[in-house]
Simulated assay, not measured.
Amino acid sequence: MSNELEAFIEYISVIKALSRKSVDAYTCDLKQIELALNKPLISLDSKTLFNLLSEYKNKRTLNRKLSSVNAFFDFCYKNQFVDEKKKVKFSKIPKLLPKFLSYQQIQNALSQVDRSSVLGLRDYAMIIFLYATGARISECLALRREDIEGEWLHIRHAKGEKERIVPIAFVAKTAVDAYMNELKKTKEYVWSNYKGEKLSRISAYKITQKYLGVSPHVLRHSYATALIAGGADLRVVQELLGHSSLLTTQIYTHIQKQDLKETLEVCHPMAKEHLWVE
């Protein structure tokens, strides 16, 4: 690994305080390119880069690697490792609207959960918790008892190590309390498996798949969608979700646009084409 790349990895680990997962992703992408290049990454030019990455047919994978390269170039320029700032353009990909579930769909799924066992109480509480707080699954799995403070949830292990405090609905807190009260002994983490060990991401995925047929992240999308549909300000939703940029939150404005379209179709006379007389 070149000196510049080592410095960049230290920067995003210590100064930027990115999550271990993000640091590993940057490291893997950049080391892979540098090894293929067989010389310091700082000497990379656009033509060589695209020749190296031409094997990636998936545009999302390609853009992730380009993002890593651009972040590295930006770091090198700001630290005067290079005289000119390089930036590689991303590949265009179609924008996909986030998948989400309605409140009724979630209620229907919850009615199927057997709460006569501790694991049933856990599954029920976790689904409600994810939908009521909009927490990322990593934030959910890192939850400790002391992180729920009355009507507030203290998310201490957020993406990029950015802590935030969000309100937690009474029904969600009640469900979590009911589950924790049935545990035979106090655990460090709220969510645990049948062995009493910290619940894994795979196990959490299996829970939401079993009852809802989706990944845990869809519940985060459903939370945001419900807020926007209810008239919440976009910046408030940004704060609740812990997004560093408002641009990330704006993917949920499709709900507002759909509401506007439906309102026009119902209320505006020109939308009712069969009534129009020329």
Rank of each mutant, 00 (worst) to 15 (best):
239 E>K: 12
87 K>P: 00
53 L>R: 04
137 I>F: 01
196 G>F: 02
90 F>Q: 12
1 M>Q: 12
168 I>F: 08
177 D>E: 15
203 S>H: 05
189 Y>E: 04
198 K>H: 08
200 S>D: 07
75 F>R: 04
23 V>S: 06
115 R>K: 14
147 D>R: 08
142 A>C: 03
77 Y>K: 03
60 R>G: 00
133 T>A: 04
206 K>W: 02
46 S>N: 10
208 T>K: 01
227 L>A: 10
248 T>V: 07
34 E>H: 09
172 A>D: 10
130 L>S: 11
265 E>I: 06
149 E>Q: 14
37 L>W: 11
1 M>I: 12
128 I>K: 15
40 P>Q: 09
38 N>R: 15
166 V>Q: 05
72 F>V: 07
83 D>P: 00
140 C>Y: 01
119 L>T: 14
259 D>Q: 15
52 L>R: 06
69 V>H: 06
77 Y>E: 03
127 I>T: 03
225 T>A: 11
113 V>A: 08
268 H>Q: 04
145 R>C: 08
49 L>R: 02
89 K>S: 13
136 R>L: 07
36 A>H: 09
232 A>T: 13
264 L>W: 13
46 S>T: 11
277 V>G: 01
22 S>D: 08
239 E>S: 06
72 F>A: 05
49 L>C: 13
264 L>K: 12
67 S>K: 02
168 I>R: 05
189 Y>F: 15
260 L>C: 00
226 A>P: 00
224 A>H: 07
251 I>P: 05
7 A>Y: 03
68 S>Y: 01
251 I>Y: 04
147 D>Q: 10
139 E>V: 03
115 R>Y: 01
162 K>C: 10
153 L>Q: 09
12 I>R: 06
168 I>H: 08
94 P>L: 01
89 K>A: 10
238 Q>P: 04
190 V>N: 06
74 D>H: 12
60 R>W: 00
248 T>P: 02
157 H>S: 05
211 Y>V: 03
246 L>Q: 04
215 S>K: 07
82 V>Q: 05
107 Q>R: 11
273 E>M: 08
123 D>A: 09
50 F>T: 05
18 L>V: 08
218 V>W: 01
39 K>F: 02
72 F>P: 09
33 I>G: 02
196 G>K: 04
58 N>M: 02
39 K>Q: 15
17 A>N: 14
163 E>D: 15
27 T>E: 15
225 T>D: 06
191 W>A: 11
152 W>N: 12
174 T>V: 02
18 L>G: 01
273 E>R: 11
114 D>P: 03
